[in-house]
């Protein structure tokens, strides 16, 4: 089965998060690799999307969607680093 890169998460996840998930940075709890989620490998099928670390293949997160609900699980990553825009003070 072929996979896409993490940029393919931008559309489906924009419904749930106010920040752009693809430029968020996460640490893989399997190998310790720290990378933007855009670099992750995304295996998508009608059953759901499985996001895997591009260094070691461990599952980082999953997304399952039904017509009226969604399940998002951050399986194999710790904190997510999200860039902020400094406000003039």
């Amino acid at each position: 089965m072929t996979h896409l890169d993490g940029n393919s998460l931008a559309g489906p996840l924009s419904e749930f998060f106010a920040f752009d998930v693809t430029v968020a940075v996460a640490k893989c709890e399997g190998c310790g690799s720290i990378a933007e989620l855009a670099r992750a490998m995304v295996y998508s099928s009608d059953a759901g999307s499985v996001v895997r670390c591009d260094s070691c293949g461990q599952v980082l997160m999953t997304l399952v969607e039904s017509e009226d609900r969604a399940w998002i699980r951050f399986t194999g990553m710790g904190a997510i680093e999200v860039a902020r825009t400094p406000t003039a003070g």
């Binding site: 089965m1 996979h3 295996y43 099928s45 009608d46 059953a47 895997r52 293949g57």
Partner: peptide, 9 residues
């Protein structure tokens, strides 16, 4: 026979 998978084959 559709193929569903959660990762590489």
């Amino acid at each position: 026979f559709p193929v569903l998978s959660a990762g590489p084959t």
